[in-house]
Amino acid sequence: MRRTLLAMLVLAVALAAAAAFAPGWLAFLLAVVMAKSLVVAGLVVMWRAGLISFGQALFYGVGAYGAGMLGMRWGVTDFFLITLVGAATAGVIAWVLGFLVARYRGIFFANLNLAFSMLLFGYMVKSSTFGGTDGLRAPIPTFLGYEPGDATRVGVLLVATTAVVLPLLALLHRFLDSTAGRMTTAIRDNEIRVLYLGGSVRRTIHLLVVVAAVLAGAGGAMVALAIGHIDPDVAYWTTSGEFLFVAVLAGPAHVLAAVLGTSVFEVIRTYANEYAPQFWQLILGTSLVLSMLFLPDGLWSLAGRLRRVRKEAGHV
């Protein structure tokens, strides 16, 4: 726990420095990475229990569209309020759907979530309230009453995003050490044993679904505020697939792995867009295959391997 907090502190300082000194495009990229890593962290937590969702874009989309609606309909522009509402809305929807989806496992869990997210996608495409296929404009955010100018806005956005994401990841880390959090692995390994110890598998999975949705909702709202625009693709299955991809790339070992995985992913995406846009999916697919063949426990396991190598070297 202490090491993790230290790492988070270092990360926070680095991001604050980036907010102050880095060029706008980098600060923007970092803000998006931080916000998306929250979505990924939620998937990683579910994955620890052996659950994958092809429909996490549902909650991500709810957060994003929530931001757009709050800005357009009610003139709300506060970054923190919008993020909070996005997270809460996603959480409530997940809580309701959770009564159903928590009974499902494996591919059926994945598919039921897919169906729900595609329902949202279909609705967003058709609905004129939500802008149809054109989507919505997200408000230009303010921060607890502070309205940064054009030059400083991205930096402030990065600081605010970090201020939301890192505490949430710290909380998540703490949750994973709790009895309920450790039960994730137990459920993946052997549900029958959990039941015969008197633990509730369904309730735990329901909780995981809600936790992951809250994180995805917050992430969706923050990404929408960073990019400034929302269209129905945020709820499409390929969006879910992308997040799932990053979760696998990251690995379930640690919450900060989500940040690492998302960073790598967004860097690849940025460079691919720049130099070889026609090969973007090829690069993505190949790296996915390579990581699953050679890094089954994700990027984070590289750190463990390095440590082991160093230790062995030290012995010699």
């Binding site: 052996g50 591919i107 697939g241 999916q281 090829l282 993505l284 697919g285 190949t286 996915l288």
Partner: peptide, 25 residues
């Protein structure tokens, strides 16, 4: 064939990766 026996999840994601690659090919 290199991933038979791995998690259901891994298999699905491998085919997802294959799909992405096929799209660009």
């Amino acid at each position: 064939r290199f991933v038979y026996g791995r998690d259901e999840v891994v298999l699905v994601l491998i085919t997802f990766a294959a799909f992405l690659i096929l799209e660009d090919v």
